[in-house]
Amino acid sequence: MNNNLPSYNELPEVFAIQLDTIGAITLKGAEQAKYLQGQVTCDVDSLAQVKLLNGAHCNAKGKVFSAFRLIERNEAFLLLQPKSSIEQSLAELKKFGVFAKVEIAQDSELAYLAIAGQQASKKMAELFQQVPDAKTPVLQDDSTTLVYIAGALDRYLIIANTEKLAEISGNFELPIYNDAVWYLLEISAGFPILSQQHIAEYVPQMLNLQAIDGISFTKGCYLGQETVARMQYLGKNKRALFALTGNNMVANVGDIIEKKLGDNWRKAGDVLAVYQASNMQSYIQGVLANDFDDATELRIKTQDSNLTRLPLPYKLSTETE
Rank of each mutant, 00 (worst) to 15 (best):
266 R>P: 06
172 F>Q: 15
53 L>N: 05
272 L>D: 00
74 N>Q: 12
282 S>F: 04
205 Q>E: 07
220 G>N: 13
116 A>L: 10
101 K>T: 14
109 E>M: 04
274 V>H: 03
302 T>A: 13
141 D>A: 05
13 E>A: 15
159 I>V: 14
112 Y>A: 01
46 S>M: 14
90 L>F: 04
101 K>P: 08
188 S>C: 00
47 L>N: 07
320 T>I: 11
94 K>L: 11
52 L>K: 04
262 G>P: 00
234 L>K: 15
310 L>P: 06
198 H>M: 05
252 N>G: 04
155 R>N: 10
66 S>P: 07
19 L>D: 12
321 E>H: 12
210 Q>L: 08
2 N>A: 10
229 A>Q: 09
22 I>L: 14
106 Q>P: 10
83 K>P: 00
97 G>N: 08
246 G>S: 12
242 F>V: 14
170 G>E: 13
15 F>T: 09
236 K>L: 13
139 L>Q: 03
184 L>I: 12
72 E>D: 01
299 R>V: 09
125 A>P: 09
149 I>M: 09
41 T>D: 04
205 Q>V: 06
225 Q>G: 10
166 A>N: 13
90 L>H: 02
141 D>K: 14
128 F>L: 13
311 P>T: 04
267 K>W: 02
229 A>T: 12
302 T>V: 07
137 P>Y: 03
158 I>E: 07
29 G>I: 08
241 L>R: 00
110 L>W: 01
165 L>V: 12
205 Q>W: 00
185 L>C: 06
74 N>G: 05
175 P>E: 15
155 R>L: 13
68 F>D: 02
306 N>V: 08
18 Q>S: 14
297 E>A: 12
59 N>P: 05
42 C>F: 02
9 N>F: 15
24 A>N: 03
78 L>C: 03
6 P>V: 11
112 Y>T: 00
319 E>T: 07
3 N>W: 14
163 E>L: 09
274 V>Y: 02
123 K>N: 04
46 S>L: 14
305 S>M: 12
248 N>Y: 14
71 I>V: 09
187 I>K: 00
321 E>L: 12
55 G>L: 02
161 N>I: 06
23 G>M: 08
254 G>P: 08
287 V>G: 01
193 I>S: 00
242 F>D: 00
146 L>N: 02
291 D>C: 09
156 Y>D: 08
116 A>I: 12
237 N>A: 12
21 T>S: 15
3 N>R: 14
125 A>E: 15
315 K>M: 12
249 M>K: 13
116 A>N: 11
175 P>G: 09
87 E>G: 08
118 Q>N: 15
173 E>K: 15
179 D>W: 05
157 L>D: 06
21 T>W: 10
260 K>N: 02
145 T>E: 02
30 A>C: 05
